Structures are given as C-alpha cells and as structure tokens.
Simulated assay, not measured.
Amino acid sequence: MTALRPELPALMAEEHVRAALLEDLGRAGDITTCATIAPDRTATAEMNARENGVVAGMELARTAFRLIDPAIRFEALVADGDRVHPGTVLARISGPARGLLSAERVALNFLMHLCGIATYTSKFASEIAHTRAKVCCTRKTIPGLRALEKYAVRLGGGSNHRYGLDDAILIKDNHIAVSGGVASAVNAARAYCGHLVKIEVEVDGLGQMREALTASPDVILLDNMGPDLLRQAVAVNAAHWQLSGDAYASDPRRTKLEASGNVNLQTIRAIAETGVDYISTSKITMAAPTLDIGLDVVIG
C-alpha cells in the first residue's frame, strides 16, 4: 500500500514564518524596498528550481507572502513531494511589489532548506530501496525547526524517529550506566510508561543485545556496528524468536533492529543489506545542502 504524502498544517507554517519575518524586518522594516519602490508599484515574479530536487515547504513560502501583504497572489505550480529539475517553475507570485520583495528572503530560506533535506533524504532512501530497511532522522535538528525538518524527511522518502523526549523511550548508554544494566533499564521503563509508548534500548555488542532480548524491548539500537556484526545481530534476533526467512521479516512480535553510527551515502547500502529494519542518521537533517532556488521578477 502506497503511503499518503504528509501534510503541513497551515497553522504550524504560520507560527514559524511569522517569527522569521519579524526577525528579518527588525526595528524599521525593509528600508531598502521602502526607499526604492513606490507604494503603488506591482510586480510578478517566478520562483525557479536551479537543480534537481524534491519539493518541501511550499506552504511556508506561500505564508511568507500572505503575512507580508494579503493582496499578494501566490500560485503554486508544484506540490510538496514533487520532483523538479533545473528550470522548473515552482510558483508565480504577483501583487504589490514592496511586499513581494520584503517576503522573498524568508520564503526562499524555508523552501531551500526544506527542499534540501527532502532531496538529500531521497538519495539515502534510493540507496536502500531494494531492502526492507527505512532511513530515519534523529533529534539532531536545528532548534525550533524540528517539526519542519522531520516533515521534509518524510517527503524525501525517509521515516521519522521520535520527535522529542516525550513520545518514545530510548534508553542509551548513559541511562544504562546509571540505572545498572540493559534488562533492568528496559523493565523499569516498561513499568513506568503507558501501553502506547514504544521502548528502544541501545547496545554496543552482542552480549548486551542478548541481555536486552530477555526484556523484550520494541526496538534494539545497534550502535556503531559494522556490517559483519550487524548480520550477526540479525541472526541472534532471529534465533531468539525462532524465525527465519520471510517469517522473520513479517512477524510483528519480534524485536525490531535499528542500526546507527557511521551512516552516509557510501555506507548505508551495506548496512541495509544486513537485514536491519531501520537505519538512523543525523546526516539527512544536519548535513543536507540547501537546494538552489531563485526568485526573479519577470514583470515589473
């Protein structure tokens, strides 16, 4: 079944865009535009892609122009999730020239950043499309932009890890060190949380993994393991649940395995081919280059 495209609620877009516009307008507004453009001038501009990419953030761009001046008309010619090529016109914007020019930078900043994340994520997803593994983002995001960046990841074909500290339990090495052990930490987490909260625990070796399996967490995070060790971990998991072949892949009861550490475009294929279910990386949010997008006035 093909998943529906994610959507960004307009209210969420407005919150972020309003803050960005206020930051840009500063204490006196756009003094360059006010000094050079008469109040009654109108203009039409086109927003163009200058390289191949995946679109993300059109609602943010639309909102930037609307908040600056509701008289500006924003005609989107593509939708979030579409793939574009150099020269593709993303949107046509027309109306009061002052507002158009004042909102331009904020609109492009959001669009270039989110398109960059969606595009970079799509490259990771493409590398592992022949496997069942999914590439996931992490909590390593630009402060304040997490929801937007995770939205862009999904548009690029990736999956979201937890959004914050409150929507899932992830027991990491420091939690284990303080709490006294892998299994005890998982058991304590299960006693604490509600039945809808997933529990994941990080391990750094097969010994810890075997201990974790005795407590039946939902997911085991295999930290900084190379492909050979990851294959062994998959075999240990299969043996624990007495599953093999297609039964292992499809059984909903078994513990899911997530690989993390040293994940990039050169390594992700080999990691996915070990049989893990998820591959988490901060690269798709923290190292994604922006997509080159321009806005040019075509009618003054």
Rank of each mutant, 00 (worst) to 15 (best):
T2K: 13
R5K: 13
R5W: 06
P6H: 04
P6D: 07
P9A: 04
L11M: 14
H16S: 13
V17M: 12
R18L: 14
T42Y: 13
A45T: 07
E51D: 11
V55N: 03
A56G: 12
A61Y: 03
A64Y: 14
A64M: 11
R73V: 13
F74W: 06
A76W: 08
V78C: 05
V78W: 03
V84W: 09
G87L: 08
T88V: 11
L90W: 01
L90I: 01
L90E: 00
P96Q: 05
G99K: 11
L101P: 15
E104I: 05
R105T: 14
L108Y: 11
N109E: 06
N109V: 05
L111Y: 13
G116S: 10
S122F: 08
F124D: 01
I128E: 11
H130P: 00
T131S: 11
P143E: 03
G144S: 06
G144T: 06
L145D: 02
L148S: 06
L155R: 02
G156M: 10
G157A: 01
H161S: 02
R162N: 05
R162Q: 10
L170P: 02
K172G: 01
K172H: 00
A177M: 00
V178I: 15
V182G: 00
G194C: 13
I199P: 00
I199D: 01
E200I: 01
G205W: 04
E211P: 03
T214Y: 09
A215Q: 08
A215V: 10
A215Y: 11
P217T: 03
L221R: 00
G226E: 14
P227I: 10
L229G: 02
L230I: 14
Q232H: 08
A238C: 08
A239S: 15
A239T: 15
S244K: 15
D246L: 15
T255G: 01
V263N: 05
I271V: 15
D277T: 07
I279P: 03
I279N: 02
S280Q: 02
K283L: 11
M286F: 07
P289N: 09
T290F: 13
D296C: 07
V298F: 08
